[in-house]
Amino acid sequence: MVEVRVENVRKTYGRVEALRGVSLNFRSGALTAILGPSGCGKTTLLRSIAGFIAVDAGRILFDTEEVGGLPPQRRGTAMVFQNYALWPHMTIFENVGYGLRLQKVPADEVRRRVRKVLELVEIGNLADVESRRPSALSGGQQQRVALARALVVEPKVLLMDEPLSNLDAKVRQRLRVELRRLQKQVGITAIYVTHDQEEALALADTVVLMDQGMIVQAGTPQEIYLKPTTAFAAEFLGVSNQLEGEVTDGKLVVGGQSIPYTGAARGRVTVIFRASDIQMEEPSAPPRAGTVALTGVLEESLFLGAHYRHYIRLAGGMVMADSPDLRRPGPVRPVLPVEKVPVYGEQAT
């Protein structure tokens, strides 16, 4: 098992800075997800580690060995691609065995190891892998084969570039579980790039959030989800409500309300909270301690299956609130527990 360390890595394409000094440790034997919107530099980082991209500055280390100058094949990584990249003219068996044949492994050992790894990834029918081509398989099965192809060479690091994004939702959820099981079983250091926050949270031991070529936040899925440190992190992790506000003289002015505020932020701020954290009360109900009460009008409620989503217009914008019951449109008081109202200063966005 290998620990991957990235130190102050930079990469510029023309005038676009894809990586702006990224430093990170990928724990050995753990699955680290790099999460971020498209163009945030996550794929560039992954491909730099694989060796497909030469970085402009910084170091990449596998344990204590610096691999920055090595070509891809000498780094001992194996990659799983979004489009599977299974060679269409080779059979499933030839695809998986290709890496071993390049290493001049004897034919019977290739056969043994390919069979073993295909069993590991649970390719159902092993009988005809030597005659069937990848195109005969479903997308999910193809990605299992691609995973087998990567694992069979026993790489030091497994790199996955949005491996599940081409699959439909159901297959994706099932494969997620299996990927996690497999990675733990093999015990390999794995790096997983995705733009899907749910996927990152479900799969990873550590989630690294990136934006504009920099790391925004790194931590366990729980930390990332529950304690986003910036407005961007909060927003990207699916927090649905965002209000502009201002802090002056110990007061936070937000949504047409002035609320006592003792935090550190000053000036223009962003207030971010989840739809599920809002409770709705009648405007006439008595105020409760430890809450922030806003004033608004419920305009519309949509039934989403698990709950209703209510759209409430405030003086300073629109918020969404989830609740299991249907309410009638009209004046309403959205109420938030104080500890669930993180305030982010302007510079953090």
Partner: peptide, 20 residues
């Protein structure tokens, strides 16, 4: 990506041409 997958396993330029 078809080529990268091969290069990843150490396929030389000649092998990439011949095999892929």
């Amino acid at each position: 990506t078809y080529l990268e997958a091969a290069r990843n396993f150490g396929a030389s330029a000649f092998r990439q041409i011949r095999d892929i």
